[in-house]
Design a protein around this nucleic acid. Structure first.
Lengths: 235, 235
DNA sequence: TAGCGTAATGTTGGATCCAATCAACGGCCG
DNA sequence: CGGCCGTTGATTGGATCCAACATTACGCTA
């Protein structure tokens, strides 16, 4: 039936590193814009002119159009018919929205994952915690945090659930920058991370999920406070 | 500040019914394909040739391309570079995946919504229950079920959470057809629906969420049994 | 005859061109 | 003087054309 059930080989890694990083121009544009938006280089409300982007990225308008459509489906840009695309705005309400989604998805993923986590996966998560301890750059910090969380959820199966989780975890990066800038990155709830990992190692899914929920609630409150302070200062 | 804070008028309804239903050809193609996939008219694995679709729908290939990209982001079709798009396959694993997502999102939405539900919204939900009692058509049934669930979640705020919930509730329609066909529609847990509504009316969010979770678990088991039986029969 | 390499074909990805729509500006009428 | 309407400019949506890629079939060679 299956002539090559396991095509993974050293050649794949070689090909992945050697070949151009993106298969199509559309993928390139999408990845570039996505990173720029998530890293805050394109603030909310920025109009995205197709022709300008095409010129700047060295492609024609068409891959830009398709990329914008995909980003629209991810709620990163807002496309109005015949009026163009703008980067989606960030706000306290949107941050709360995102947290409600993460608060629903991530504990579910964690509960499903813990019974099937391997020791290697837990070790990887632990390594990511220690990497976070010494990472000075906030951008890398967000990436490591994302990788740590996803490493804990990796054994959940359910690829769609995991993809959704990762997408919204990444979407949160737009707010993480504010968060870290506001309250200093050193207290990024590393003890929560360690406690979650320990509970996971003991197979205590419910306990780990409870820590995660508190972790997320705490982060949500910090973001809400930051927005409240910013609006008070701006007003 | 706001020159027209409430632009709703009889003219809007008129315009909505008179004008062509879709603003752009892309929207038309996307809606058409989405409905066809969710209703089961396009089974999993069906290849979607751009030129053929364009001809059949009376548009050029370009709106088809953009629509396929949007459907890809919704996991309804799978697009492989230079190899075209196929309708995403359904499977027991994917159904379980979808249920894990619904099981995470919907109780969260319900908990957030119940404290803010108005009596009018509850009445609407009740009307949808009675409408389901007398609906013979399975397709309409799925629509009513979706509307009932969303009516209960409507007061949750958090537009992104609601949009995600609705999207995955709609995605489940592909399996609902199987479900209803297999075990007869009359027992579609109408008592669960009524119990949820009553708990919501009493403001008991936790109780309503518990009923919803059991409701979803039960549906998930039914689908799993159906798939197991089908595979046993096919083998 | 089996396997590899090559050519042919069909499909998609990308570029360019044209049409439709929206926003802004300016003139006209009340 | 203010509001409405037509016109202009800019931008997007859609159509057509060309190039690149993947699959298939064929032929050659061992």
């Amino acid at each position: 039936m299956k002539p090559a059930p396991d095509p993974v080989s050293p050649l794949d890694a070689l090909a992945a590193s050697a070949a151009p990083r993106w298969r199509t121009a559309t993928e390139f544009v999408e990845a570039t814009l996505k990173a720029a938006i998530l890293e805050g280089r394109l603030p909310g409300g920025t109009p995205l002119r197709q022709e300008e982007l095409a010129e700047r990225l060295g492609v024609s308008r068409m891959p830009v159009r398709e990329a914008l459509r995909q980003l629209e489906a991810q709620a990163l840009v807002e496309v109005l018919p015949h009026r163009g695309a703008v980067v989606a705005e960030i706000s306290a309400a949107d941050a709360a929205d995102l947290f409600a989604i993460r608060r629903a998805l991530e504990p579910a993923a964690l509960r499903l994952s813990i019974p099937h986590l391997t020791e290697a996966q837990r070790d990887q998560a632990g390594a990511l915690i220690t990497a976070m301890d010494v990472e000075p750059d906030p951008g890398r910090m967000g990436l490591l945090n994302r990788q740590f969380h996803m490493a804990l959820y990796a054994a959940a199966g359910h690829p769609r659930l995991l993809a959704l989780t990762e997408q919204h975890l990444a979407a949160f990066d737009r707010y993480l920058r504010f968060h870290l800038a506001a309250q200093g990155r050193e207290r990024m709830a590393q003890q929560d991370h360690r406690a979650m990992l320990e509970a996971a190692a003991r197979g205590e899914a419910a306990a780990a999920a409870a820590i995660l929920e508190a972790h997320l609630d705490q982060a949500a409150e910090a973001i809400a406070r930051f927005f409240a302070a910013r609006e008070a200062g701006a007003a």
